[in-house]
Amino acid sequence: MGFFRGGRGGGRSGRDHGSAGRSDDARDPDDDLTDDELRSQVRALLSRELGQGVVLEPDDVPAPVTVARILEWLQTNEFSYFVDSDGDLGGLWRGRLFYFFLFGDEAEILQVRGQWNREISIERLPEVLEACNEWNADRIWPKAYVRVRDNGMVHVISEVATDLERGVTDAQLAQLLHCGLSTGSMFFDAIDELYPDPAAAAP
């Protein structure tokens, strides 16, 4: 149907970043190094290339993602937020509801989930699904999908999830949170174009 036209910024590159051609026996010796040993190697490499000692700042060292770190990012950027009755952290961005979840056995999976600020009737479900599928085929972020509520109304959802088992620096966390909010807002803007709100236009 061609819902979304124009450039594909942030789309799939089509490159295969897998380990094709590498057998299980051809292991990288770095696989057995500890984090401290790898960090020491990085310092030595940078020192050799730059001709000076390099010290990693605390913010440059990956650490586990926590609700406290997400809260700190929200407060630093002066974003309004709330904690609902279930203890989930969320906020409104450009009139859309976003939540920040941590999943996994070690709460290592960060998910930024957004919800479009309007509902769609069940009769339009096939065309909304087609729009979501087209978005997902052309773009990496966010994952777009719908949920049908018990009352038969359809909610449009955006989602950006990242496995942070190895930790994340402050700069990386900020980038991931911003990615979840900004790309989710871009998707909802596209849905707004498909279904303009008559009440938002002057009579």
Rank of each mutant, 00 (worst) to 15 (best):
R113G: 01
T66H: 00
R48W: 09
Y81Q: 02
D30R: 15
D84N: 12
N136H: 06
R139D: 02
V42C: 09
D36V: 08
C132P: 06
R43V: 15
R48T: 11
G114Q: 02
R94C: 11
L125A: 10
E130V: 10
D32T: 15
N136A: 03
L129G: 06
T34D: 10
A131V: 09
V112R: 01
A44D: 15
L92K: 10
S121L: 09
L102G: 04
D35W: 07
R27H: 09
L74V: 02
P62M: 00
L33Y: 07
L45Q: 09
Q41E: 13
V55L: 10
A107V: 04
R96I: 04
A68K: 06
D105Y: 07
V54Q: 03
V83W: 00
D30E: 14
E78L: 11
N117Y: 14
T66Q: 01
E134M: 07
F103I: 06
T76W: 05
G114K: 00
A68G: 05
I140G: 06
D105M: 11
V128L: 05
E134S: 08
R118I: 02
R39H: 07
R69F: 01
P64G: 01
D138H: 11
P58N: 02
L38K: 13
A63S: 11
A137C: 10
A44K: 11
F100D: 05
N117R: 15
R118Q: 12
G90Y: 00
W93K: 02
R27K: 14
F101V: 04
S121C: 09
S80A: 15
V65Y: 00
L125Q: 10
S80K: 10
A131N: 07
R48L: 12
D30P: 04
R94E: 15
Q111F: 01
F79L: 12
D28Q: 07
A131T: 08
A137T: 12
W135S: 05
L97T: 12
E127S: 09
G114V: 04
V67C: 04
Q115L: 09
E134T: 09
G95L: 06
R94S: 14
A44P: 03
R118T: 09
P29L: 04
R139G: 05
S85K: 13
D88A: 13
V65W: 00
E119C: 10
L102M: 08
A137I: 07
E78R: 15
P62G: 00
F101W: 12
D30V: 14
E106T: 11
R27M: 13
I120F: 08
D84E: 00
V42P: 01
G87H: 03
N136R: 07
L46V: 07
I140T: 10
D28I: 03
V83C: 03
Y81H: 14
E134K: 07
G51H: 05
T66R: 01
A63C: 06
L97E: 14
N117C: 14
L56G: 09
P62A: 00
N117Q: 13
G87Q: 02
D31C: 08
S40Y: 08
Y81D: 03
P126G: 05
D86Y: 08
S80T: 11
L33R: 13
A137M: 13
N136M: 05
R48F: 10
W116C: 04
